[in-house]
Write a protein that binds this DNA or RNA. Structure first.
Lengths: 138, 138
DNA sequence: ATCCATGCAAACGGTTTGCAATATA
DNA sequence: TATATTGCAAACCGTTTGCATGGAT
């Protein structure tokens, strides 16, 4: 998804296109890994010092409700992280917090779906994170 | 792991055996799913009204450092959850928060280990959670 | 002109910490 | 007795909210 698609999606849903929202979307597009709201704020301040942290939270939650952004909680970090929605999983360094994304998906090969059927549970999404030490920290 | 094993492990590591710690371990043994510190506190108050929430946090972190307790963060819940350590994964209901544990493990069948080797990443642990709606909520 | 979105500042809630009192070994 | 542990209360920090101002449609 690019900037045009995302702004169109906002308009289609009846939300206004403000400079702050555009700036936030651009910043999210510039990251290739999950980031905290305050990390996004930091990056944003370089060129848009006038966007408040509250607005970042509100915009990310809005984008999240439209399925444009995904929200995750990694086991060893206290803060919520956000990233543009696309299906993948993460290697997470327990020391430095570095996140490496990868595409392999466990759903294709576990008996998870079978288990869900037995429990009469309907699957919506899933999370798979692998923790350890990156090349610098091990 | 039972009460004896756990208290022994505490003693072996030079920690003192207090009534509070024993009560906390017993409560954790009584749960078969991850619980928040305050949920444990609630249950504890039934028979041990004199254990403070701070002590629960401190004890759970201590047990966590000994590998007796595991700490997880589910995507849709804000609070940290704790459970006695044993390897498994979770189905999590997005509506009522119900957690169903299951044993199937995705590590055995994804190419994750291969990816880790390519990234020079050493794996310590992993998390796999499946979100959706339970039989009551769907 | 209307009403949504923003910024500010304060509230919130779960978690952590300093310190003095207490209990374990 | 010495030292780790506890309880209390306050601090902490990321996140959320109320409200008045300002901006997009």
């Amino acid at each position: 998804m690019n900037l045009k698609d995302i702004t169109q999606s906002l308009k289609d849903s009846g939300y206004k296109l403000t400079p702050q929202r555009i700036a936030i979307i651009k910043v999210m597009l510039s990251f290739d890994k999950p980031v905290s709201a305050s990390k996004a704020h930091q990056k944003l301040k370089e060129h848009h010092p006038n966007v408040s942290l509250d607005t970042i939270y509100r915009s990310l939650h809005l984008l999240s409700s439209l399925g444009i952004v995904t929200q995750i909680n990694l086991a060893n970090r206290e803060r919520e992280l956000f990233e543009l929605a696309h299906h993948h999983h993460h290697l997470v360094c327990l020391k430095c917090g570095k996140v490496i994304c990868f595409d392999a998906c466990p759903m294709s090969c576990t008996e998870t779906e079978e288990i869900a059927v037995n429990q009469n549970f309907s699957i919506v999404s899933h999370a798979f994170e692998v923790y350890g030490y990156c090349s610098n920290c091990k």
